[in-house]
C-alpha cells in the first residue's frame, strides 16, 4: 500500500488526448476576459488586477503575523511603484521623433532603416495600446487591493462552506479542487511575475546601456514574453532590435543585445529557476512554439505573448479538476520538465 507517495504537481496524463480539453478550458478562461476587455476596459483592469493580487496573496506564508507584514509590504510596494511610474510611462514608450531614422542613408541601408522605423512605430503603437488597456488608475489599483484583501480574508470560511456543501461522493474532488486551484495558480502567478520583473528589468537596463531608442518598451516586451517558456525571451529580444538606433549601429547593438540577453537568461536561471521550476506546467518546446505561433496568427504580437500563459493556465485548471492517481506520481522523464 502506498500511503506516503507524493502527489505530483501535474498529473502525467496522455498529452495528445487532452489538446481539445485544454483548448476548451483556455477558451473558457479567455472569452470572459476578452468580452470584458472589449465591453468595459476599466472593469477588465479591475478584474485582472484582483485576480493577479489574489493569486499573489494565496502564496503568502500561512503564519498570520508574517502574512500580514508581507501583505502590507506588497501593498506599499505596488502603490509606490504605481505612483512612481504613472507620470513617466507615456513618455517612456512615446513614438520616436520624426527624422530620427537617419534620412541621409541610401540604397539597402535606407531600405533597412525604413523597415526598422516602420516596425518600431508598429511596436510602439502596440505598446501604447497595451499600457492603455492594462495600466490601472490609482483608484482601480486601490479597489483591486481592497477586493483581493477581502477575498484573502474570506478564503478560509468560504473554503469551509464550499467543502461542507459538497455532496458525499464529491467530497474528495471538491477538497482537491479547493486546495489545488489557488495553490497552483498562486505559485504560478507569483513565479511568472518574478520572472517577468527580473527579465524585463534587466533587459530594459541592458538596452538602455546599449543606447536603444526605447528601452522601456523593450523591457515591457521582455516582461510580457518571459512567461512563454524558451521562445518568449528569444522573440522579445528579436523585437527589441527594432529599437536599435539606425542600421549603422545595428550590428554593434545586436552584438551587445546578445550579451545582455545571455546575462538576463543566466540571471533568471540562476536566481529563479531552482526555486520556481515546479510551478510551470510541463509543456514541450514544440507545443509551446505551436501555440505561440497560433496565437500570433490569430492576434499578432499580443497573441504570441498570451498563448503560452493561457495554455499554462488551462493546464493548471485541468490538473486541479482531475484527481491524481498513485500511478500518475511515478517519476516522469527528465524531458517533461523544461526550463527557460
Amino acid at each position: 500500500m502506498k500511503t506516503a507517495m507524493p502527489i505530483p504537481t501535474v498529473p502525467a496524463r496522455e498529452e495528445s488526448g487532452h489538446v481539445l480539453a485544454l483548448a476548451l478550458i483556455a477558451a473558457g478562461i479567455l472569452l470572459p476576459l476578452l468580452i470584458c476587455a472589449l465591453a468595459a476596459p476599466p472593469l477588465f483592469r479591475l478584474l485582472l488586477f484582483t485576480l493577479w493580487l489574489n493569486g499573489l496573496a494565496s502564496t503568502l506564508p500561512p503564519q498570520p503575523g508574517r502574512r500580514l507584514c508581507l501583505g502590507a509590504l506588497l501593498v506599499l510596494l505596488l502603490l509606490t511603484l504605481h505612483q512612481l511610474f504613472a507620470p513617466l510611462l507615456p513618455g517612456l514608450i512615446a513614438s520616436a521623433p520624426p527624422g530620427s531614422a537617419a534620412p541621409a542613408l541610401h540604397g539597402d541601408a535606407a531600405l533597412i532603416s525604413r523597415h526598422l522605423a516602420a516596425g518600431r512605430s508598429e511596436l510602439l503603437r502596440f505598446a501604447r495600446q497595451l499600457t492603455a488597456l492594462l495600466w490601472p488608475s490609482t483608484a482601480t489599483l486601490a479597489l483591486a487591493l481592497l477586493l483581493a484583501g477581502l477575498l484573502t480574508a474570506l478564503r478560509p470560511p468560504l473554503h469551509r462552506e464550499l467543502l461542507r456543501l459538497a455532496p458525499n461522493r464529491a467530497l474528495t474532488r471538491r477538497a482537491w479542487l479547493l486546495r489545488e486551484l489557488p495553490d497552483r495558480f498562486g505559485r504560478w502567478i507569483r513565479d511568472e511575475s518574478l520572472r517577468s520583473l527580473l527579465m524585463g528589468g534587466l533587459w530594459a537596463l541592458g538596452t538602455w546601456l546599449l543606447g536603444y531608442s526605447h528601452p522601456a518598451a523593450a523591457g515591457l516586451f521582455m516582461a510580457l514574453a518571459a512567461p512563454t517558456p524558451f521562445w518568449g525571451p528569444l522573440f522579445a529580444a528579436g523585437l527589441s532590435l527594432f529599437f536599435a538606433l539606425d542600421p549603422g549601429h545595428l550590428p554593434l547593438q545586436a552584438g551587445g543585445a546578445a550579451i545582455v540577453f545571455a546575462v538576463t537568461w543566466l540571471a533568471a536561471h540562476l536566481l529563479l529557476t531552482p526555486r520556481l521550476a515546479l510551478s510551470r506546467p510541463p509543456l514541450s518546446r514544440g507545443w509551446t512554439l505551436l501555440w505561440a505561433l497560433a496565437g500570433y496568427l490569430c492576434a499578432g504580437v499580443g497573441g504570441f505573448f498570451i498563448a503560452a500563459p493561457l495554455i499554462a493556465a488551462a493546464r493548471h485548471a485541468d490538473g486541479a479538476l482531475h484527481l491524481p492517481t498513485p500511478r500518475s506520481c511515478e517519476p516522469t522523464s527528465p524531458q517533461s520538465v523544461q526550463f527557460s
Partner: peptide, 27 residues
C-alpha cells in the same frame, strides 16, 4: 494519511450501516 503530507489513501473506507462522521479537511 491526510495529515501525513501529500499522500494517497492506502485503503478504502465504507459505511457498514448509516453512519455519521465529522470531517476535518487537510487544509
Amino acid at each position: 494519511a491526510a495529515l501525513a503530507g501529500d499522500a494517497f489513501y492506502g485503503e478504502s473506507c465504507l459505511a457498514l450501516e448509516p453512519s455519521r462522521v465529522a470531517v476535518l479537511p487537510q487544509t
